[in-house]
Design a binder for these strands. Structure first.
Lengths: 207, 207
DNA sequence: GTCTATATCGGGATAGAC
DNA sequence: GTCTATCCCGATATAGAC
């Protein structure tokens, strides 16, 4: 049949509501009502909110993991780095509810916590590998200590910047996050690349 | 009488439990039990969790605001900046529950949201003023655009770094946050100051 | 697979005695 | 101010019919 399976529709709807209102503020009843199905039916597919969140996390993981296996053999430049970050952030923004209540979720669902940590570590490794590649080409001039810290800082920004924007009652734009990260990396680039990046960053903010 | 007023004891206890377990995971009943008073009594003093959170926020505001009125007339150097950040972070850490569920809290309690935003803005102004002062003394070399972004980045870090550490199942140390911010500012310092800072930062991480 | 109806449970609110 | 006892409600869980 052409109709999407109910299970998938539930996940889609839950994702939407979670993202809009925050996971703790959405009840299973609301999800059922929004979908026009009964609470009992929803319970048939997902025994509560917990498995729902886990189900959505699996989707997220599937979407993100392929990106964390970057083709390092090719020669890349700073532009590629921004593109890469943009793709990451887009996927994270699609599941932004996961990051709005990160400590809470990871605290309540230890399984989720472990898997998220492992995902974050994969992300850090990738970010570090790409930076190392840029350094090997002399695009990046900073020392290793500083770069290690830079990776931490980029990760922090990717994880929490949308949240930060929301707290400040701003729109929550992926472009802004990428801009922030560009400005974060810029001081570590060699002077020429640095100026170029700061200019591109300014344009990025509008688009 | 020598005994602390019940109202204050409730606030103290709530703060402790909120910080340990996260505000959403603590019930008024738990607080009452922990204190050895009845739920009814607690309700007599605070009609629910909402006024409790507000009450704690007021305390936090009182503790932080004096710090956000820095003596800009005196000549300061980078060292003073780190000390200042350290003091800020210590106070924030004392009320860390506020930042563990920031979007949630500000979403649920619009009043709190407004006041937190205003506090964040005061913080940003102060951070910017101090950076400008360092720039006036040629300690800082970056352009204004970059410095504006740096303020955003420092703010983000102060607000979310403890949370980040918690998600990674680390200890949640104020020193680590200050270290992160130092490494964030370092690339904007003139070469001499930069090296000095990176060295001090390394030591800071242990202490 | 999907529905309706009901049970359960936990947290918050509240009355009234002391 | 503080206690005990109870009520209320929203959310989740579950049984059983269709």
């Amino acid at each position: 049949m052409a109709r999407i399976k109910t299970r998938e529709r539930i996940l889609d709807c839950a994702l939407q509501l979670f993202n809009q209102q925050g996971e703790p503020n959405v009840t299973t009843l609301e999800i059922a009502n929004e979908l026009g199905i009964s609470p009992g039916n929803l319970y048939y597919h997902f025994h509560g909110k917990e498995p729902l969140v886990l189900g959505l996390f699996e989707r997220f993981e599937e979407a993100l993991l392929p990106l964390l296996d970057p083709p390092l053999e090719v020669r890349l430049d700073a532009e590629d780095y921004w593109l890469f970050l943009h793709l990451i952030m887009e996927r994270m923004a699609q599941y932004r509810f996961l990051f709005q209540d990160l400590s809470n979720l990871t605290g309540r669902l230890p399984t989720l916590g472990r898997r998220i940590r492992s995902l974050i570590n994969a992300l850090k490794r990738t970010l570090a590998a790409l930076l190392a590649s840029l350094k090997a080409q002399d695009q990046v001039v900073s020392e290793t200590q500083a770069l290690g810290q830079l990776v931490e800082q980029i990760t922090l920004t990717l994880l929490f910047s949308l949240d930060y924007q929301r707290v400040l009652a701003r729109e929550g734009d992926v472009g802004v996050v990428v801009y922030q990260v560009m400005m974060l990396v810029a001081p570590h680039l060699r002077p020429g690349a640095r100026r170029a990046t700061e200019q591109v960053a300014g344009k990025y903010l509008q688009g």
